[in-house]
């Protein structure tokens, strides 16, 4: 019986024990996923706009983690092809982007505070339909 595609992709990853295996891509991916999930949780749960911004940083850096991991030749013991240096460049680009985004977002937040005397994102529903 032919294995389902998803299982074929996922099973090798989880087949090994991460706690016993040497540090590889999997570990980085796990960290990235944790960061990402934490970021999403932060974005959805925090009512403070600054908290939401922090969540965004977490999400972006979680993604960065993936780029870095996949592009590192040392982490791929199986000799699978890597992304080369591109991953790091893109990660740097994302960091740059995050800085710019943070600057704009902070400006918006400050303005919002000036106008509403709060940074509660639930109060920021002026543009609702």
């Amino acid at each position: 019986m032919e294995m389902p595609v998803l299982a074929a992709a996922v099973v090798p990853i989880f087949a090994a024990n991460p706690f016993t295996d040497p540090v590889g891509v999997i570990h980085y991916l796990v960290v990235g996923a944790v960061l990402f999930t934490a970021g999403i949780a932060c974005m959805t749960l925090k009512r403070n706009a600054l908290g939401v911004l922090m969540g965004i940083e977490l999400v972006l850096n979680g993604a960065n983690m993936n780029f870095v991991a996949f592009s590192s030749p040392y982490l791929r013991a199986d000799g699978a092809p890597t992304l080369g240096l591109d991953g790091q460049v893109i990660a740097l680009f994302v960091i740059l982007l995050a800085a710019a985004e943070a600057a704009v977002a902070l400006a918006i937040t400050l303005n919002f505070y000036n106008n509403h005397a709060t940074v509660d994102v639930d109060r920021a529903d002026d543009l609702k339909g």
């Binding site: 974005m43 009512r47 994102v121 639930d122 529903d125 609702k128 339909g129």
Partner: peptide, 18 residues
């Protein structure tokens, strides 16, 4: 009808996206 979707709640949007 569709404009009702546009609630203005930022966190809800993030939720939807995720």
């Amino acid at each position: 009808e569709l404009k009702k979707l546009q609630t203005g709640h930022l966190r809800q949007y993030v939720m939807f996206i995720a």
